[in-house]
Design a protein around this nucleic acid. Structure first.
Length: 286
DNA sequence: GTCCAGGAAC
DNA sequence: GTTCCTGGAC
């Protein structure tokens, strides 16, 4: 394999030989056997727990999820209990994980599963992606981890593994060039552990060689958090959890944002159905 | 400074 | 193609 996928005008994908793929799989399995990670959300039979963990793990480090996940499951142990809870309670339990809109999506997902799917999470990715907060990647991972379906999906660690092994001399690698390799190597009988193994191997690669996914065509440098609208939004959420029915002046005092900026941010949060106003006072949405 | 089991809405 | 969040590890 050498410099095959760099020409984007006339892609001539050449798969590695069966032997190369076989050796690759053996290497991943060996690593997993010796150095695989263990998490409380792994090898669980309850699809609900898999969904909660996968939504939490979107753009959030495993250590942080490990800290928050157990209490969340204790508070809301099932789709039914989560669906029946208020958004305020769900959002409160979410604090510390970041990206608060995920809490909204997860809450709505639980309602949909209970009301539309009779409390049972669909098995297939094509159905899973129709649920709020679940895109192609999470649909694939949920199907694999919850039901051991040999799906084909990519997330940041998997991406790193394939870039490191099969695209050493390439740059700006598109996922469409990686997916055939994922499909060719997925374990038909043990997809669940195979993807655990790939993720663990990817984490190891990043520790050892830096992040191979920086060569991905999809890699984006994260914008600064300090001083951003995101920071203001987070402050507003925390404040309205503690003090429902707060007026504009109070929010301005807490956030120290200009009036124009704060009005704009509040409007966007109302549009996201994160908050709502009543008589010029704001609260967490329901 | 970089990174984190991304998706929705614009 | 941007915007949403968090805070510690590195």
């Amino acid at each position: 394999m050498k410099q095959i996928y760099t020409n984007t005008s006339t892609p001539t994908p050449i798969l590695p030989t069966p032997l190369e793929l076989e050796l690759f799989c053996i290497q991943i399995w060996n690593f997993y056997r010796n150095s695989g990670r263990n998490f409380v959300w792994r090898n669980v039979e309850d699809p609900y727990k898999v969904v909660v963990s996968e939504i939490m793990l979107q753009q959030t480090q495993t250590a942080r999820v490990a800290q928050k996940y157990p209490q969340f499951i204790e508070l809301f142990p099932s789709f039914q209990s989560l669906a029946a809870a208020s958004f305020l309670d769900v959002l409160s339990a979410w604090q510390g994980l970041g990206y608060n809109r995920r809490a909204k999506f997860l809450h709505q997902l639980a309602v949909r599963v209970v009301t539309v799917h009779n409390g049972k999470l669909p098995h297939l990715p094509e159905e899973l992606v129709k649920l709020p907060g679940i895109g192609p990647n999470t649909a694939g991972s949920v199907a694999a981890f919850a039901y051991n379906v040999p799906t084909v999906f990519i997330e940041t660690n998997i991406r790193s593994v394939f870039i490191h092994h099969f695209f050493k001399a390439d740059e700006y690698i598109h996922d469409r060039h990686i997916l055939p390799l994922v499909a060719a190597t997925v374990d038909r009988l043990d997809a669940r552990n195979w993807y655990y193994a790939l993720m663990d191997y990817g984490v190891m690669l990043k520790q050892l060689h830096g992040n191979p996914s920086r060569k991905s065509a999809h890699h984006v440098v994260q914008s600064k958090f300090e001083g951003s609208d995101r920071q203001i939004r987070a402050q507003i959420i925390r404040e309205l959890i503690a003090h429902p029915g707060l007026d504009f002046q109070s929010l301005q005092h807490v956030t120290q944002a200009t009036e124009e900026r704060l009005r704009r941010i509040i409007a966007s949060m109302e549009k996201d159905a994160m908050i709502f106003s009543h008589d010029q006072r704001w609260s967490i949405a329901e």
